[in-house]
């Protein structure tokens, strides 16, 4: 995409649940074509930030622009992968049906999904290595497989911006590899990917930009510039001691070289 215009521009965003602020005055620019991780402690407002970008929660102040326009006008450009526990996995629906749902937005009212939508869904399932599970009921999948189905649903949306809430949380090694491969594929084709992430050890390996969040935005930008002991301490407060003590080398920016060639 045009690099001049940021994919997502968050300005002065404050979000409160019942006047209890969850996000304070966030200014965040996410350039087009980057792979950005959002990190922060529990209750830092990571999921809320995603939901605010998607218009799922109404901000008390500030706004979010997607390629220069409010989200409501740019809906088709954005795909969302929610946390796995957000749906009822005993729902009577097959893997293929869930992925086809990703096309509903493009279909609009009244039109039914047909052969074309099912083929697109099967393609997306093949990309995440789940084509053999198309007719399974979704509750019969493992956690990692469920996550890959959600990812496939986002892929069929054929969006410009992908927002993913903890896609790597508690998944198996195959799923983690598949998801990472797809994240890099997406970026290679110029898409913008924003991922809520929980594992500090892998941040510099997986992402090229990072936003550190703890109700307020502590820092954001290229991993090499902003991901360091000072910003981590500001984000995690007292919890950082053991992080530094355990593996100080990993929080240094140098592993980023590995990403650039992947």
């Amino acid at each position: 995409m045009k690099t001049e215009q940021p994919a997502i521009q968050v300005t002065d965003l404050t979000v409160a649940y019942r006047d209890k602020p969850v996000l304070w005055d966030i200014d965040l620019t996410i350039p087009g074509g980057v792979l950005m991780g959002i990190i922060g402690p529990n209750g830092a407002g990571k999921t809320t930030l995603m939901k605010a970008i998607l218009g799922l929660v109404r901000p008390s102040a500030g706004q979010v622009l997607v390629y220069g326009k409010p989200y409501a006008q740019q809906r088709r450009l954005v795909a969302y992968v929610p946390q796995r526990n957000s749906v009822d996995w005993d729902f009577p629906t097959s893997v293929l049906d869930v992925v086809v749902m990703g096309r509903y937005g493009a279909l609009g009212w009244f039109r039914r999904p047909g052969k074309r939508e099912r083929e697109q869904a099967l393609d997306a399932l093949a990309r995440v290595g789940m084509q053999d599970f198309a007719s399974r009921q979704i509750g019969q999948l493992s956690g990692g497989q469920q996550q890959r189905v959600f990812l496939a649903r986002a892929l069929v949306q054929d969006a410009q911006v992908y927002l993913m809430d903890e896609p790597l949380q508690g998944v198996d090694a195959t799923t983690e590899r598949t998801i990472l491969r797809i994240l890099h594929d997406l970026r290679a084709t110029g898409k913008t990917v924003v991922v809520v992430h929980h594992d500090l050890q892998t941040v510099s390996e997986y992402f090229d930009q990072v936003a550190l969040l703890n109700v307020r935005l502590v820092a954001s930008g290229p991993v090499a510039e902003v991901f360091n002991a000072a910003t981590l301490r500001a984000t995690y407060g007292g919890q950082i001691a053991f992080l530094e003590g355990r593996d100080p080398g990993r929080s240094a920016p140098e592993p980023r070289a590995g990403i650039a060639v992947s």
Binding site: K51, R75, P82, V87, D88, M101
Partner: peptide, 21 residues
């Protein structure tokens, strides 16, 4: 029947339904 698709997605994943507009 007319709103089948929308009712289905609302019942399964309301957040996703809302993000679709």
């Amino acid at each position: 029947a007319l709103f089948w698709k929308e009712c289905a997605i609302l019942s399964f994943d309301p957040d996703f339904a809302r993000s679709m507009g």
